[in-house]
Amino acid sequence: MQGVGKTYGPIRALQGIDLTVPAGRVTCVLGDNGAGKSTLIKIMSGLHAHTEGTFQVHGETLVFDSPRQALERGIATVYQDLAVVPLMEVWRNFFLGAELRHRSYPLAGLRIREMRRIADEELRKMGIAVQDINQPIGTLSGGQRQCVAIARAVYFGARVLILDEPTAALGVKQSGVVLKYTAAARDAGLGVVFITHNPHHAHLVGDHFIVLKRGRTELDSPRSEITLEDLTQQMAGGDELAALAHELRPSGTPTAPASEGTTE
């Protein structure tokens, strides 16, 4: 992805973004609200077409105009809140949009037993214990639903997995579970794009970090060249936060890490 930008009428949402997603690596995209993270995801997942720059998948220059096209090229996206259809069963959600059928004529029967079995197996393989594969997915917890969506992307041979704020609405324990599956997806050889505003979560799994600010790249650095403190500082507006931390620190206390208080 090179110099990609997007304008909504007169509003320039994103410009000059360079992003490479290598296989087996986690690329973290960080940014505050309104920094352009969602626009970037929408371009990569095919919901919106970009208006400038070039977007390449395996050397092929493309402009997506539907999520189906992105999926066909192995780019799967797990959205924060629209990952699943809550009233449908776990296995139906797992296979939604890629159902197995007996024949290919219209109204051909679904291979229901097989889909139930595969969904169950795949979830177990990822270490997700769902009590009943037939329960509506809405009865699962938020973290479990994210994990089902990740397992689905891995099973359907995604080569690039985009995770949109997967830990934003979750508690500490559930975030840990989601991060574990993010790592599992990376180990399975997928290129992962992890989008978040939480530098702690990003630093736990990330191999490369990009910080967006007002639609531009603010920082672009591999893991080896950056510490959690740097990252947190970049995210929170750099020096502003240092000044704030200084003000908030009671006089006489030894230096506290400047990162605290920025999570969630």
């Binding site: 997942s45 919901l47 999520p67 189906r68 999926l71 996206t77 959205y79 629209l82 990952a83 699943v84 259809v85 939604l96 949009g97 890629a98």
Partner: peptide
């Protein structure tokens, strides 16, 4: 929206 995102 979920349906559209998974290619329905």
């Amino acid at each position: 929206d979920s349906a559209r995102a998974v290619g329905v």
